[in-house]
Every structure is written in C-alpha cells, then in structure tokens.
C-alpha cells in the first residue's frame, strides 16, 4: 500500500499481526546523488584496473587488453549486483545517502531481484542519462524505475539514528503546581488530550521555533491553561509563560505516566 505524507511518498506495509509501518520512499534527487557516487566508485575501480593493465601490458599487451575489457565490463555490470547483495540492498552511494533497496512487500531481498533490477538498467538509461527511468520513477507511486518494477523492489530512505533531547521532557526539580494537587487534578480533568499533545509538541520542538514566535506560542498556551484553572497569584506570577506550560504538561503527563507504569509488567 502506498501513502503520501507531507509531499513524500511512503510505502505502507501491514504485517499479519496487524502492525502497520511506513517506509519513506527515496527521492529522485537522493537516488541521483547515490548513482553519481556509484559512478565515481566504478571510475576509481576502473582506474585501478588501468594501473594493473599497464603492468600486465609489459608482459603481454594482448592479455592486458582482454583483462581490461572483461574486468571493466564485470565491474560496471557487477558492481550494483555485488554491493547490493553484500550490503543487503545498499551500494556505496546508497550507504552514504542512507538509501536501501528493499522488497516492495517488505520481505527479504532475493538475489534474483537484485540481478533483475541491475540488469534492466539499460532500458532505464534510455534515451540518455536515465531519462526514461527517471520519468517512470517520478510518475510511479512507489518511485520505481522499470528495473524496480520488474524486480518488485523499492528504494527507501533510512532514517537517521534518533536522539531525544530528554531535558525538554524532564520535569523541573521543583514544580510549584505539585503543591496544589486539587488544581492539578482539575487541570487534568479540563485539558483535552489534543491540547496536551499540542503543548507537549511545543515543548519538544521549542528550539526549532523562532524566539518571537516561541514567546507568542507559549503565551497563548499559558493563557489557555490559565483560563481552565486559576492558580494562586504567587505561583502564577513567579514563573514565565513557558515554565507555566512546562509545569502544566508535566502535571498532566506525570499522572498518565504513573498509570502507564503501573500497568507495565
């Protein structure tokens, strides 16, 4: 199944257990860059062969010529097959750009699939420089060129390893709202889940927001929370709007988390 989110194509796979996961389909530009890197790698390998050929030519120019013709051909045709088989769907270029060839059903990539997608390249290259393959890939819902279509493969983008800035989520050492459990309870009661999610999102992504817009956003959020629950002036005035929202979110999620942790085995 194919879905498109935020202008990017994704491959949606549903497992027999009912778990659905989306894999980001690689963009044409990334694939072009990966292809360029692979082209450069083949050129480097060919230059190395050229050096060997020069040495061999001293012994026999004829054998050297045959060696060059065959090995250049084997490298240019076999490079993609070998690297994608050895690195499970990745060539050097794909590794650098975090792309990977996968079976379109999410299953393991088979050798025959790798061979077919690589050997059908000549038709994708027509009339020049992947024009046909690029057009087919651009119009394909799965971003497949003709070789991918025949091999039932898809090139996906691998996400970067994530790192959570945990300090954004940590509750302050001292949350003044804790002194008012009845107000915290009211807050939890009146705040809608979607409002809590928006506030949490704002905290998580605070560094991505322009300072001016951030002040405005937290002011609006704090005003909204204040309209739901009124804390004592000494509590309210002693903290910034952002801190108010942080405290509110911490109070809301602390209880959710308490419940969740109790239910964990």
């Amino acid at each position: 199944m194919i879905a498109t989110s935020a202008g990017r194509k994704t491959l949606r796979i549903q497992t027999p257990e009912g778990v659905v996961f989306n894999l980001q389909i690689a963009e044409i530009f990334s694939r072009f860059l990966a292809w360029s890197v692979d082209g450069a790698a083949i050129s480097v390998a060919s230059s190395l062969i050229g050096t060997i050929v020069n040495l061999l030519a001293v012994l026999s120019p004829d054998v050297a010529g045959a060696f060059f013709a065959v090995s250049y051909f084997v490298i240019s045709v076999g490079y993609g097959i070998f690297t994608e088989w050895h690195w499970r769907g990745q060539s050097l270029g794909k590794r650098l750009l975090r792309l990977r060839v996968i079976d379109a059903s999410g299953l393991k990539l088979q050798f025959s699939q790798i061979v077919i997608r690589n050997l059908l390249r000549p038709v994708d290259l027509l009339p020049i420089a992947y024009l046909l393959g690029g057009l087919v890939s651009f119009s394909s819902r799965r971003g497949q060129r003709l070789g991918d279509l025949a091999a039932n493969t898809v090139v996906i983008s691998m996400p970067q390893s994530f790192s959570i800035q945990s300090q954004h989520l940590k509750e302050s050492k001292y949350n003044s709202f804790r002194n008012y459990p009845h107000l915290e309870a009211r807050l939890r009661q009146r705040v809608q889940p979607v409002e809590a999610a928006v506030a949490l999102d704002a905290i998580l992504r605070r560094d991505e927001i322009e300072p001016g817009a951030r002040l405005e956003l937290f002011q609006q959020l704090a005003t909204h929370f204040r309209s739901l629950v009124t804390f004592e002036e000494k509590v309210d005035e002693a903290i910034t709007n952002e801190q108010f929202v942080r405290n509110a979110v911490a109070s809301i999620y602390r209880q959710k988390n308490d419940r969740a942790s109790k239910s964990l085995p």
Binding site: F21, L23, G106, L107, L109, P159
Partner: peptide, 11 residues
C-alpha cells in the same frame, strides 16, 4: 527509527 527496525525484522 522504529518503523525501519520493525520493517527489517519483519523481512
């Protein structure tokens, strides 16, 4: 990250 991990394991 998890989608990719689950995808790999699924395969």
């Amino acid at each position: 990250y998890l989608e990719t991990l689950v995808g790999r394991a699924y395969g």
